Simulated assay, not measured.
Amino acid sequence: MIGADIEGTICSRAQCRAEAVWVIEWRNPRLHAPDRRKQWAACAEHVRYLHDFLAARDFPVSVHAVDAVDAARNAS
Rank of each mutant, 00 (worst) to 15 (best):
M1S: 14
A4F: 11
A4T: 15
I6W: 07
I6T: 08
I6F: 07
E7A: 14
E7I: 07
G8T: 07
G8K: 05
G8N: 04
G8C: 08
T9N: 01
T9K: 01
T9M: 01
I10C: 12
C11K: 09
C11N: 11
S12F: 04
R13K: 14
A14F: 04
C16Q: 01
R17I: 09
R17P: 00
R17A: 13
R17K: 13
A18K: 10
E19W: 01
A20I: 02
A20P: 03
A20M: 06
V21N: 08
W22S: 14
V23I: 14
V23L: 13
I24E: 04
I24A: 06
I24G: 04
E25W: 10
E25Y: 11
E25G: 07
E25V: 09
W26E: 05
R27G: 03
N28W: 10
N28I: 06
N28H: 10
P29M: 04
L31R: 14
L31Q: 07
H32Y: 12
H32R: 12
A33C: 07
A33R: 14
P34K: 09
P34D: 06
P34S: 01
D35S: 07
D35Y: 02
R36F: 09
R37A: 00
R37G: 01
R37L: 05
K38S: 12
Q39T: 05
Q39P: 00
W40P: 03
A41Y: 02
A42Q: 00
C43E: 07
C43K: 08
C43H: 09
A44I: 02
E45Q: 09
H46N: 07
V47T: 10
R48N: 12
R48Q: 14
Y49V: 12
Y49K: 09
L50R: 08
L50G: 04
H51Q: 13
D52C: 04
D52Y: 03
F53D: 11
F53T: 10
F53W: 10
L54V: 03
L54D: 10
A56G: 11
R57V: 12
R57D: 15
D58N: 08
V61R: 06
S62Y: 03
S62N: 06
V63T: 10
H64T: 06
H64A: 10
V66N: 05
V66K: 04
V66S: 05
V66H: 01
D67R: 15
D67G: 09
A68V: 09
A68K: 09
A68L: 10
A71M: 00
R73P: 00
R73M: 07
N74G: 04
A75D: 05
S76W: 12
